[in-house]
Design a protein around this nucleic acid. Structure first.
Lengths: 222, 222
DNA sequence: GACGGGTGACCCGGATTCTTGTCGTGGACG
DNA sequence: CGTCCACGACAAGAATCCGGGTCACCCGTC
């Protein structure tokens, strides 16, 4: 499934954390056979594999008659990868280095799209806060908010974990790219940015739990 | 399982005390083989091991097809494992120095999450006292209490051991970090703080057993 | 070169933690 | 019955830690 072993584990763990069942493969050949054995609902596939290209893996899987959704992991610079990835039947791709939060959002989006449930419209909501993942839009009480990408991902993470206190470290691990080396002072800064935009009008939804972390939740009753 | 022998024993003892069955390994290689032999429900793994990195141990365990949950113990300053907690394929991580109480709470949380029970929502309760670990909230008879982190951990410890008298020493050993150097006068102080907040309204739940310790229990019938 | 997003450093004010000290209680013992 | 002592409750205070905000720098793009 991946060329860097720890990356496969990282992805698998993050997905398991979100309640998905996972299996990993360490080579393209293994990935093909594992797909036939496990009949997965979705495959996360690195383009760079030790034996063959991920795109080739995807082609073989398709050739075997499976239409399982595939999300590619691709190096940032490789613009060619993107093109070939989607043309070979991938459903989406994420460029490295990515954040776990980003990957999981894509996985959910693809699953949502392929399962024609239609009940879930690609929006997340909490109180009067609505996130449209497809349009990359956030509205508070109907008013469109102008967020930077990092702000958007941070808010989406807080929203998907609404009611749960997340530590700065957890936030850093999920929202920032997996090879980010900095400390978690950044999180404070971005919480500050978000508050300015999200809690500008209306009751505050982003709360600090001192020495523990941050939560998205309704304000306490007075 | 650990690089500092006494730490492994400390953790094992604490877990056994909580009713878990435990086995320890003193090196990474041993840990891998012991995992295959014992089929544990969960592994507590120190990142710094004498032979190989804990992350490598985790990788090998995963490679052998096991998806057993792993909780990492990691040094805070961690210049090495900048590749932070989740980045190594674990389900959760605790930074050293930690309190046993904290570690056990994490272990329970991971077990709760991985077992698709879903019925247990992460709350503990005794009488009209309810602790929500996700939201870091405590309520007495529905009224929200404002506790500091240390107060929270102390109350959680008393609650998980409701009805059992815990000595000041035990409390100190479980609630405070394992390398805490102070004396147990601090326990008295925090019991005092807790009483002021928890037993403020309603019958007292925190009781002193002179010369023995403290208990959380219902008041005696008059 | 200008611009905007992202990061890390800094300072301040306030909360939190831990220590110390005083006071009160209850039991032991002469 | 009086005294002493151990222990616990709590108050007060000092040191530390941490959150919030601001600001300056870096780096990419246009």
């Amino acid at each position: 499934m991946d060329d860097e072993p720890y990356l496969a584990d990282l992805v698998a763990t993050a997905l398991r954390y979100e309640g998905f069942e996972t299996a990993t493969a360490s080579s393209g050949a293994e990935a093909v056979s594992a797909t036939e054995a496990c009949k997965p609902d979705l495959i996360v596939l690195d383009v760079m594999l030790p034996d063959i290209l991920g795109t080739e893996v995807c082609r073989r899987i398709r050739a075997s008659g499976s239409d399982v959704p595939v999300v590619f992991l691709t190096a940032m610079d490789a613009t060619e990868d993107k093109i070939s990835g989607l043309t070979v039947g991938g459903d989406d791709y994420v460029t490295k280095p990515f954040s776990l939060e980003e990957l999981i959002a894509r996985v959910r989006a693809v699953l949502r799209r392929t399962k024609r449930a239609g009940d879930d419209s690609g929006t997340l909501a909490f109180a009067d806060l609505v996130i449209d993942e497809d349009a990359y839009e956030v509205r508070r009480g109907g008013v469109l908010l102008d967020l930077t990408p990092t702000e958007f991902k941070l808010l989406r993470f807080l929203l998907t974990n609404a009611g749960k206190v997340m530590s700065k470290r957890q936030i850093l691990d999920h929202v920032w790219e997996y090879d980010f080396g900095g400390n978690d002072g950044v999180v404070q800064t971005y919480i500050s940015y978000l508050r300015r935009k999200v809690d500008f009008a209306g009751p505050p939804l982003i709360h600090t739990v001192p020495r523990v972390g941050y939560v998205l939740r309704l304000p306490r009753e007075a």
